[in-house]
Every structure is written in structure tokens, then in C-alpha cells.
């Protein structure tokens, strides 16, 4: 049975949780994702994907039973303990299980996470924590034995490129495709080391080239994030520099005003340099978004792709109704 989880990166998105029943029962209009139109509304197509892909696919199992809360890509967005407890209480009220999501961090970020881990470790139930940093995994494994670490999608380093969303590169040879479609997480030492540290679940983006990994009978299970595929991230933030004076822009040691909570950018890649004759022209995706320090692509994997993955040990969908930052 496939579990459906709702990802809320921050308190701003609490409406998604408050309206979780509406998400399940909503009517999904077929609004095109076209920024040239005056009524450009980039996020409803995501709920449309929910309606046309997940809803029929999950059928009678269509029910959110878990909430992912927290930021994956920036330690400036680690929630306060107050926000976390507010979301957690709302989850309890709605009888939803709770998973805390963490980003990659410096030592400063670890100091912010420690009180949250201490609180979660003291809760009655064993709580899942998504880790996107081996340091965080090390910390949880050593100091918080009641928490259940999950290896997040930032640790699953399969290549991806939005420009090949619709057509793979011309001339790709079979060996290249095999490498592109596999994760290294199923290699023996990964399984042994991560397993010893308490990891039982790996998380995946749906990459354009497809995923061939089979988790059936492996002792591990896997989650799919849908429909936003993370492409790249870094601590240098264009959006976070919007309000800074020129000499302080793009620095690591200057605090931002969290402009990523207010603005996002839509990317249009340039036309192909070969004057539209090469094979990859049709792969140029226009569905690329920059949110803060991170680039995402909208992955419109159809139902049959998901169904195939469900048959191979992918037993959880982490649905992201909004841009996941």
C-alpha cells in the first residue's frame, strides 16, 4: 500500500495543511503553465497533477496520513520550535503522522536543530527525521536513538537536467543510461553503513531519465517526491541578496531577509545553439523554477511511471502542493 504524505516546508504553507481535505476533494482545472499569459498562476497545475495523476492512481488509498514539515535546502529556514509544535499539534488533531525535514547545515545550523531533536526525541512516538547531511545522520544516530532517520533526496545524487525532461540526450549509449538510472544507495557498503545508523528509507526525486532501482525485498523502502524535482542548490543565494547593499550580496556571512518567502523566479532556457536542428531541442524544458538558493523542475511523470515504481518498493509519495522551499 502506498502512503501519501504532504510536504509543508514552512509555517507560511500551513494553509495546505489546514485545507488538506480540500486538496483531496478539489476540482482541478486544466490551467496551462504559461508565463506569457496574464493569468499566469504557476501552482494550480501542481494540484492539477494531483488530480489527474495521483488521485486516480491511488484510488481508495487516496488519503494523506503523514505530514513532512521543514526545509531541505537552507538552514536559514529551519523552523522555530514554536512553529514546529504548532504544526505537530495540528497534525495530531487531524490524525496525521509527523516527519521532520532537515537541510544540510553548518555547525550553526546544528545548534538550531538540537532543541528540536531533543523535543522530538522526548515525544511518545518514534518520529521520523529526514536527513540531508551525513553530519545530521551521525548526530541523530549517536544522540537521539528514538528518532528514525530517513536519507533525504539531497543524499541521493542521481544526475538530472531539466533540459532533458522530454527527450534524453542524443547518442546516449546503454552504459550511460544504466548509470543515469541507478542510485548508488543500494551498493553493499551504503546499505550496511546506513542500515547500522538506523536508516530504513531512502528518498528520491523522479528524474527525467527514469529510475531502475528495485527496493523490493531489500530491507529498505523508498519515497518519491512529487511533482517537484530538485536540481541544484548552494549557500550563495541570488534571491536572498535582493535587499542587500552591493558589497554584501552573495556572501555566506550576511543574513538575508528571507525574500524566498516572497519571490520566486521562472527560468526560460535559451534556444538551442544549433539553430534547432539537434536532437535535444525538444528536451528544452520551460518548467524550471528558482526559489531562493535552489533550482527545481516541475516533473510531470505520468501515472504509469509512478505505478511501475510502486511495484518496486517505492511505497510513499511526498506530495508538494507548493514550491518546496
Amino acid at each position: 500500500m502506498v502512503e501519501l504524505a504532504l510536504h509543508i516546508p514552512g509555517i507560511r504553507d500551513i494553509t495546505f495543511l489546514e485545507n488538506v481535505e480540500g486538496t483531496l476533494d478539489g476540482v482541478y482545472s486544466d490551467i496551462p503553465l504559461d508565463p506569457s499569459q496574464d493569468d499566469f498562476i504557476p501552482l494550480p497545475p501542481v494540484t492539477r497533477l494531483f488530480g489527474i495523476v495521483l488521485k486516480p492512481l491511488l484510488g481508495k488509498n487516496l488519503k494523506f496520513n503523514r505530514v513532512y514539515f521543514g526545509a531541505e535546502f537552507c538552514q536559514c529556514l529551519i523552523p522555530s520550535l514554536e512553529h514546529l509544535t504548532r504544526i505537530k499539534k495540528l497534525c495530531e488533531k487531524k490524525e496525521l503522522k509527523f516527519t521532520f525535514v532537515t537541510p544540510y547545515v553548518t555547525d550553526f545550523g546544528i545548534k538550531q536543530l538540537v532543541p528540536i531533536f531533543s523535543y522530538l526525541n522526548s515525544c511518545d512516538e518514534n518520529i521520523e527525521v529526514v536527513v540531508n547531511d551525513y553530519g545530521i545522520l551521525n548526530l541523530i544516530s549517536r544522540d537521539y536513538p528514538r528518532l528514525l532517520p530517513i536519507l533525504g533526496r539531497c543524499m541521493n545524487k542521481m544526475e538530472r537536467d531539466p533540459r532533458f525532461a522530454k527527450k534524453l540526450p542524443a547518442g546516449m549509449i546503454p552504459g550511460q543510461l544504466r548509470v543515469w538510472q541507478e542510485t548508488c544507495l543500494t551498493l553493499p557498503y551504503y546499505k550496511r553503513i546506513l542500515g547500522e545508523m538506523g536508516v530504513k528509507r531512502f528518498e528520491f526525486d523522479i528524474v527525467p531519465q527514469g529510475i531502475k532501482t528495485d527496493f523490493s525485498g531489500s530491507g529498505f523502502s523508498a519515497s518519491l517526491y512529487y511533482p517537484w524535482t530538485f536540481v541544484t542548490t548552494g549557500r550563495v543565494c541570488e534571491t536572498g541578496s535582493l535587499s542587500l547593499e552591493d558589497s554584501k550580496k552573495f556572501r555566506l556571512d550576511v543574513s538575508c531577509a528571507k525574500e524566498c518567502r516572497e519571490y520566486f523566479a521562472y527560468w526560460v532556457t535559451p534556444p538551442c545553439e544549433c539553430n534547432n536542428k539537434c536532437e535535444t531541442k525538444s528536451a528544452k524544458s520551460s518548467y524550471i523554477f528558482q526559489v531562493g538558493n535552489t533550482i527545481f523542475m516541475l516533473c510531470e511523470a505520468p501515472a504509469d511511471v509512478l505505478r511501475e515504481l510502486f511495484s518496486r518498493g517505492f511505497d510513499r509519495v511526498v506530495y508538494e502542493p507548493g514550491l518546496p522551499l
Binding site: 544540510y104 539531497c154 545524487k157 538530472r160 541544484t232 548552494g234 533550482i295
Partner: peptide
């Protein structure tokens, strides 16, 4: 680079 080698999965 503005993106970090550890977390850049672009080809």
C-alpha cells in the same frame, strides 16, 4: 560556483 558540488546534480 553558486551551487555546491555536494548538492549539484546537474549534468
Amino acid at each position: 560556483c553558486a551551487f555546491e558540488g555536494a548538492y549539484c546534480f546537474l549534468s
